[in-house]
Computed example of a mutant assay.
Amino acid sequence: MVRLPAPGHRVVVRYLLPTGQATDALGELLSADETTVVVDGKRGIERIEVADIVAAKEVPPPPAPRPRAR
């Protein structure tokens, strides 16, 4: 199993799609067990099979929004 931080931290998880193409899930780690990792990101909640994971790591919080130009 890949090493992930405790739930509640922001992570990026690279995993393989059924087509063999790789994609990333970026967001808050909701849970992780021996078979499934759950990430809540911009695309919604993603359930990822551990067998499909290529890499994973904790990432820093997103940058603060920029002020709008007038």
Rank of each mutant, 00 (worst) to 15 (best):
R43P: 01
A6Y: 11
D40G: 10
T19P: 02
I48Y: 04
T23F: 02
A56K: 00
T19A: 09
I48T: 01
E46P: 02
L16M: 15
G44N: 09
D24H: 07
R3I: 06
A55F: 15
H9Y: 11
G8F: 04
M1G: 11
L30D: 08
R66E: 11
A32F: 03
V39C: 12
P62K: 07
P60Q: 01
A25S: 14
V11A: 02
D52T: 15
D33E: 05
G44K: 13
D52I: 06
P18A: 03
V38H: 05
L30A: 11
I53S: 00
T19C: 03
L17H: 14
A32Q: 13
A69F: 14
M1I: 15
D52S: 14
E49Y: 07
R68F: 08
V2E: 04
P65C: 04
R43V: 14
E46H: 07
P63F: 07
P63K: 10
A32G: 04
V39E: 08
E34K: 07
H9N: 14
T35I: 07
V11G: 02
R10L: 06
P7E: 05
P62I: 10
A64P: 07
E49D: 14
P61F: 11
A25Y: 02
Y15E: 03
E28I: 13
P18E: 07
V2H: 13
R43D: 10
P63W: 07
I48E: 01
R47E: 15
A56D: 05
A69G: 11
R70W: 14
V37Y: 00
P5H: 04
M1P: 14
R70H: 13
H9V: 09
P61Y: 08
L4W: 00
V11F: 01
V38D: 05
E46L: 05
G27W: 11
G44V: 13
A25G: 10
P18D: 05
L4I: 02
M1K: 08
E46R: 10
T36L: 09
P18F: 02
V12S: 08
K42E: 10
V39P: 03
G41P: 09
Q21H: 10
